[in-house]
Simulated scan of single mutants.
Amino acid sequence: IGAGGLGDPIVAGLALSDSRMILSGAIPAAAASSEQVHRGHPHDVLFGVNTSSDGLLAVGSNGRLWQSRDGSQWQSNSNVGDSRALLAVSERQGNLLAVGQQGGIFHSAGDGWKAVEAPVKERLFAVAQGDFGLAVATGAFGAVLCSQDGGRSWQQSQIDWPALIGQNYQPHVYNAAIDARGRIYIVGEFGMIARSDDAGKSWQSLHSGEASLFGLALSDTGLGYAVGQSGTVLRSRDGGESWKAITSNSDAILMDVAIRADGKAVATGIRQALSISPTSSQARVLNHDAFLESWYSDIAVLGNAFYAVGEQAKVIKISL
Rank of each mutant, 00 (worst) to 15 (best):
S78H: 09
S83I: 02
S83T: 13
R84T: 10
L87Q: 12
L87A: 04
L87D: 00
V89G: 07
E91Y: 07
R92N: 09
R92Q: 01
R92T: 04
G94K: 08
G94W: 06
G94H: 04
N95W: 10
A98S: 03
Q101Y: 13
Q101K: 14
Q101L: 02
Q101W: 08
Q102H: 15
Q102F: 10
G103F: 10
F106P: 11
H107Y: 12
S108T: 11
D111Q: 15
W113R: 02
W113Y: 01
A115W: 03
V116W: 01
V116N: 05
V116R: 07
V116H: 01
E117V: 04
A118G: 13
V120G: 11
V120R: 10
K121Y: 00
K121P: 08
E122G: 10
E122I: 04
A126E: 02
V127Y: 00
A128L: 05
G130V: 01
D131V: 07
F132V: 13
G133I: 03
L134T: 08
A135W: 06
A135Q: 08
A137E: 04
T138C: 11
A140T: 04
A140K: 03
F141Y: 15
F141L: 15
F141N: 15
G142C: 07
A143R: 11
L145S: 09
L145I: 11
C146P: 08
Q148T: 14
D149F: 08
D149C: 03
W154K: 12
Q155H: 12
Q155N: 14
Q156N: 01
S157V: 02
S157R: 04
I159A: 05
D160V: 09
D160I: 04
G166S: 05
Y169P: 08
P171Y: 10
H172T: 15
H172D: 13
V173I: 15
Y174F: 15
Y174P: 06
Y174V: 08
Y174T: 10
N175A: 15
A176C: 11
A177C: 12
I178N: 13
D179E: 10
R181G: 14
R181K: 15
G182I: 02
F190M: 12
F190G: 14
G191W: 05
G191C: 06
I193F: 05
A194G: 04
D197G: 13
D198T: 06
D198N: 14
A199C: 02
G200K: 09
G200C: 09
G200Q: 02
K201R: 15
S202V: 10
S202C: 07
W203T: 14
